[in-house]
Design a protein around this nucleic acid. Structure first.
Length: 251
DNA sequence: AATTGGGTCAACCGCGATGTT
DNA sequence: GAACATCGCGGTTGACCCAAT
């Protein structure tokens, strides 16, 4: 037999979170750390589904979250990453410190998507809406988004000059995406487009990993037992795990 | 002052991958 | 290996805000 259900279907609160609920969740996670979302609501005294607690914490309550508008650099990076990963918001979020997948997804749908459309670009493919792919490859005009500096897909002229293939074209994109936590000890092994991209992105010196924000330091606990900086410097953390880069205070 | 319409974003839903029994 | 739970993700919804009318 499997496990028991993740949460009781009855007596579950839905909708907007109250300040009291937020505080209960914050207090509990401060004391016990993240994890075991199934048992968390009851233990924290919340009448919420564990899933809802996890979402609230990750998207809103985490102390390392950035608030406020996206910077031009972040916007630029989102477009680059979206071109590489598509709607893999968690992958994109993993490379934008302090931003959540939900936040990026919302920002994409409300701002960037519209901007691209107004430029006549397909937000999914980042290519002109009216032209087919072959048209684009034969086009002499660069695929540029002036508002997002540095997003140049490449041109036929450039390709014929350098004799690059489509895959190489991808690699021509400057992927200096290391403002986040781009290092992974073992890049994905599968020979997929994503893995190639990941390999490239993750090919950052190990020293970059130490530039990640340690949550404990962020909270002012550097040097304390809770601070795991030194431990984390010994082993590399997957980029997607930046938000987990901390250790429960009571451990 | 009331209504309307668009923009924003927190939260929910459903699904696939993974883990556990 | 089957059955089930958990986790995490992407898509969608709906409440709220604000400006225009």
């Amino acid at each position: 037999m499997g496990r028991s259900p993740c949460c009781e279907k009855t007596h579950i609160t839905k909708g907007a979170w109250t300040k009291e609920e937020d505080q209960l969740l914050i207090n509990y996670i401060r004391a016990h750390g993240e994890g075991c979302w199934r048992s968390l609501p009851r233990a924290a005294g919340l009448l919420r589904c564990g899933k809802s607690c996890r979402l609230r914490w990750i998207n809103y309550l985490r102390p390392d979250l950035k608030r406020g508008n996206f910077t031009d650099e972040e916007q630029d990076l989102i477009v680059k990453l979206h071109r590489l990963f598509g709607n893999k918001w968690s992958m994109i979020a993993g490379r934008l410190p302090g931003r959540t997948d939900n936040e990026i997804k919302n920002y994409w749908n409300t701002h960037i998507k519209r901007k691209l459309l107004s430029r006549g670009l397909d937000p999914q493919t980042h290519r002109p809406l009216t032209n087919s792919y072959s048209d684009i490859r034969n086009s002499s005009s660069p695929l540029m988004i002036p508002e997002f500096a540095g997003i140049k897909v490449g041109t036929q002229e450039a390709n014929s000059r350098s004799g690059t293939t489509e895959e190489e074209e991808e690699e021509e994109l400057n992927l200096d995406l290391s403002i986040s936590l781009p290092f992974q000890s073992q890049p994905p092994s599968a020979n997929t487009a994503e893995s190639k991209i990941s390999t490239q992105i993750f090919a950052t010196p190990p020293s970059m990993a130490t530039q990640a924000v340690c949550l404990c330091c962020h909270l002012g606990f550097q040097g304390s037992q809770a601070c795991s900086c030194q431990t984390m410097r010994m082993r590399m953390v997957p980029a997607n795990d930046i938000h987990r880069y901390y250790r429960p205070l009571d451990s």
